[in-house]
Nucleic acid binder design. Structure first.
Lengths: 224, 224
DNA sequence: CATACTATGCGTATATTTTAAGCTAAAATA
DNA sequence: TATTTTAGCTTAAAATATACGCATAGTATG
């Protein structure tokens, strides 16, 4: 059999900062779509798994090392890529932007965070991929406490609340949300407080990693 | 770039008959795993989309034409296939076995339904793929009324109930289940009855296609 | 320094949904 | 006449979701 399909991976990486969700994009250094923005990614080599490929590409093009990564969808339409037939396995990742400094290299001229309400025009079918990823993010956050991957280690409860209102795009009742979240028993309250601006200083929380992952493994379990 | 990865598609097709869920498998005609059972599938040609490839392979190897098909997961480990590096996009399908006659050809020596509690040894990593598909089926049926794809056009309510107990592997309260299902307003009660064995003859139902797909589109749904 | 303001933290009441199960009766077969 | 399956009504307890009141502990302001 003669098959000349090329296989690539792409990664939609979301981060949360300044009360909005952002996506990590790169500016393409080469044709096609040279100078245009795109989701980080690239071809899979013969000797690496798909996951290894995504991680490598992310590292190369943006300098980032991710720890939450899951498969999103495989895109295989005929003319996705103007050069050849390219099938791409898209991944979905989450990180804390504050923990990394972006540094573009290899195929990327530049790497940058874009808030999801202010996106540039994208290369290939990357707009479609991103759209699917956003849908997944919104669906996921209603039944899994993704905060662990997106917030700082220590955070006031209001940060978690803001993350949810931001991702879901609607208000949630602060008191009931708090009740429900604390009821999951995956947050540890610390003996530290932060005060930003006026108002009563907030207690800091941390996710309890063990209980968090145990809950996830059991296949969660809450509805916001 | 030199890349020699081959791309294939595989389809896990479930059917429901005689009160159990079955999977459609083929007996491989050629090496590797000649004579062993496998999930239907094969290589994607340069000029077809992934969906077209799955449909073609299913048609060739089993004679079946499917109308419910969705992407399951892409498997990309290094040594899935003893010959070369092969990455496979797995699909998940549902059909009514009664509506088709199996007829193997091309790469398949034989096509056959296996109940999921009585599976043969499988080729490649197909056991893993199947396991994931079963998990998906069980998860899906609790929030989507898959009955439409699996049952005959007209069916007694007890068939729907048995489908659920069979897939979920546990009893469900008949009265509450009926209440919930009928409450979804996607079933049309017919003026026909069937009597099988003893007991009061059951009224027949049909899924109301319009309301069924409308409900699905709205992304509803329900919890069993 | 008193007072206003603001975000936080806790509690309570009510509404809705889910789960469980009792009961009756109809329509068939054994 | 007994048994079985379907059909449907009904109630009660338990769990969840929703709405909202109010005290608290800080900062900001006159």
């Amino acid at each position: 059999m003669q098959q000349s399909i090329k296989l690539s991976v792409d990664a939609v990486v979301f981060g949360y900062e300044s009360e909005t969700i952002s996506v990590l994009l790169i500016k393409r250094k080469y044709e096609p779509f040279k100078g245009k923005w795109a989701i980080p990614g690239g071809f899979v080599t013969d000797s690496e798994s798909l996951e290894e490929a995504v991680e490598r590409e992310l590292k190369e093009e943006t300098g980032i090392k991710i720890n939450y990564l899951e498969q999103l969808y495989t895109f295989g339409k005929l003319n996705r890529d103007p050069r050849n037939r390219v099938v791409s396995v898209a991944y979905f990742g989450l990180i804390k932007p504050s923990a990394f400094k972006l540094s573009a290299s290899t195929d990327a001229e530049e790497a940058q965070w874009f808030t999801i309400n202010n996106l540039p025009e994208l290369s290939f079918d990357h707009a479609e991929i991103l759209k699917l990823a956003i849908t997944r993010l919104q669906a996921k956050i209603t039944y899994e406490p993704l905060g662990f991957e997106l917030l700082d280690t220590k955070f006031p409860f209001s940060d978690l609340e803001k993350l949810y209102t931001s991702v879901l795009g609607r208000d949630i009742d602060r008191r009931n949300f708090r009740k429900k979240m604390l009821g999951l028993n995956i947050l540890d309250e610390l003996d530290e407080k932060v005060s930003k601006g006026s108002g009563r200083p907030a207690n800091l929380f941390m996710f309890n990693k063990n209980r968090y992952f145990k809950l996830k493994k059991e296949g969660i379990i809450f509805e916001i």
